[in-house]
Design a protein around this nucleic acid. Structure first.
Length: 275
DNA sequence: TCTATTTGACCAAC
DNA sequence: GTTGGTCAAATAGA
């Protein structure tokens, strides 16, 4: 979380910063609204397991009814699942991921489906990456939130997994990177401890491949959001369980101008001030 | 054969 | 004793 902390250092008071960091660590929620199409009706509870291909008998007994959930936060890192645990009081198990790039990298994340809203995932990032996956980049579609002076920061918005037919299932080598996309979005709900970011519009190809090294770098200011800033969606890194497989793959990642509707909801420990 | 996922078992903290 | 986190053998798919 070090990048998050550094990004926040310039703009938040210590108490705000602490609350936000805590919020981000605990409750980084990523909406799984349809990306051009509905997900399959059956899914593993954590979204961590590969969705069976047509005719696949893979662990059918574990499938649950309800919206298909993948590990919905695509943060351009490669993650490897190393465990899953039933959590007391939670309807859905928690999945445990390590950085899959280098064994020595301490970065981890926990992914858990929300009880209240199964369509959302709670993602907790632990430890900072010591590997260079992905390499830092200098230019993103979303301006650096720390660049502004007093702009109110939105908690880091996780990027959205882009559908790819090539990337579901385990143990497969990653395909070549796909072009990144940008999508206009706007903050629609403020003034409470729930922050909802909704993106609608069409996918736009960005000028160059510029993977987002950390979710922090996706963080715009609210001032910018009001004016429908751009949320950068990096090319899928094909980190297995983070991808939307199956019918979502009907959407060609190369087809620009796709209709799109995305939503991120962030539950915070603090009230988000009115603009 | 290779590599990632799954899942029961183990361990440490409370 | 309970719970969350991690390990590692088994498993699956190309």
């Amino acid at each position: 979380m070090a990048p998050v902390q550094s990004a926040l250092a310039a703009t938040w008071t210590p108490s705000c910063r602490t609350s936000l960091i805590h919020c981000v660590k605990r409750s980084l929620l990523c909406g799984s609204a349809p990306v051009g199409s509905q997900r399959p009706p059956a899914s593993p509870p954590t979204g961590a397991q590969p969705v069976p291909a047509a005719g696949d008998q893979q662990r059918q007994g574990e499938l649950l009814n309800g919206p298909v959930l993948q590990n919905g936060v695509h943060d351009s890192y490669t993650w490897r699942k190393y465990g899953q645990k039933e959590i007391l009081g939670a309807r859905f198990p928690r999945s445990y991921y390590k950085c899959g790039r280098r064994p020595g990298c301490p970065a981890k994340k926990h992914v858990q489906q929300c009880d209240a809203d199964p369509s959302k995932l709670e993602v907790t990032y632990l430890e900072a990456h010591t590997c260079d996956d992905p390499p830092p980049s200098s230019s993103h579609a979303v301006p650096d939130p720390t660049a502004g002076s007093d702009a109110l920061l939105v908690p880091p918005v996780p990027t959205v997994p882009f559908p790819s037919a090539q990337c579901y299932g385990g143990g497969r080598p990653s395909p070549p990177p796909l072009p990144p996309y940008q999508v206009p979005y706007a903050a629609t709900t403020l003034g409470s401890n729930v922050l909802t970011l909704t993106a609608t519009g069409v996918l736009l190809p960005s000028a160059s491949y510029d993977p987002v090294p950390d979710v922090t770098d996706c963080t715009p200011s609210l001032e910018q959001e009001q004016d429908h800033d751009l949320l950068h969606i990096p090319s899928p890194a094909c980190s297995q369980s983070e991808l939307l497989p199956m019918e979502a793959a009907k959407l060609s990642p190369h087809a620009h101008g796709l209709p799109l509707s995305l939503e991120h909801t962030l539950d915070c420990d603090f009230a988000v001030p009115e603009l």
